[in-house]
């Protein structure tokens, strides 16, 4: 495995696997992350996987970067690319009705598909969580078919509601909180991805899979009501 060790200062080491958004690369990155977790290297604080790399946060008082690289090399040599036991599959409700999907027609037009066909793509795809970022709990998920490889808007729209499911550039995100976005809103999910009422507020982790199932507006509201009352609503299944 040809990787580059790129310093992110004296408290971070970026292990770069490539440049592109690619499931093969991501499998390797997740496998290294799991191996680093299992190795419990003294001085490693946490790791952050992204499309292209694994960032290893470390404490230079406990381990120097040169020594850390030597600890990582044997792990890299033995990656099996198997993330069993390190990821969860989630079945999340999605509503396409009413004001949940203001950009669904635009997306359908762009892709030369009908609204129903776009809905079928969203519910028929197993969305892979490449990474989280931008806001606490926000997943970047892939991969949508080429037809849905839509560019972002040139300027962002303010106040995109919490729970919005958005697509652009072949990827899908779900907004854990109200934020601006240049992506296109195709649906809304009533299950919170970041809930400060819980001891563990973030729902998703890198490597997880998300499958959407369509619900009516009435069902969406019923689920939102249960969420309001503290019902966890969904349970993940280990992969």
């Amino acid at each position: 495995m040809a990787v580059s060790f790129l310093p992110s200062g004296d408290r971070g080491l970026t292990v770069q696997f490539g440049f592109d958004i690619d499931r093969g690369l991501s499998r390797q990155i997740m496998a290294l992350r799991a191996a680093v977790d299992d190795a419990a290297i003294a001085g490693v604080i946490e790791t952050v996987p992204t499309y292209r790399s694994l960032l290893v946060h470390y404490d230079p008082v406990e381990i120097r970067q040169a020594a850390l690289i030597e600890r990582l090399k044997p792990l890299l040599a033995n990656l099996d690319g198997d993330d069993k036991g390190h990821a969860t599959r989630w079945h999340l409700p999605i509503c396409f009705e009413g004001d949940c999907s203001p950009d669904l027609d635009f997306v359908a037009d762009f892709a030369s598909l009908s609204r129903d066909e776009v809905k079928t793509v969203m519910t028929g795809t197993e969305h892979f969580v490449y990474m989280l970022g931008f806001a606490p709990g926000m997943p970047y998920m892939g991969d949508l078919p080429a037809a849905l490889n839509i560019p972002r808007r040139s300027s962002p729209v303010q106040g995109i509601p919490k729970g919005s499911v958005l697509v652009a550039t072949g990827l899908t995100v779900i907004y854990p909180a109200v934020n601006p976005s240049g992506w296109h809103v195709v649906g809304r999910c009533p299950v919170p991805l970041f809930d400060l009422g819980k001891a563990d507020p973030v729902l998703l982790s890198p490597g997880d899979r998300v499958c959407f199932r369509e619900v009516s507006l009435a069902d969406y509201e019923a689920i939102a009501e249960r969420v309001e009352q503290g019902d966890p609503v969904v349970e993940g299944e280990p992969i």
Binding site: G9, G12, D20, T50, S53, Y140
Partner: peptide, 11 residues
């Protein structure tokens, strides 16, 4: 532009 990677304090 790059495809995102991780940030540390001080990047």
């Amino acid at each position: 532009d790059i495809n995102s990677d991780g940030i540390v304090t001080g990047s």
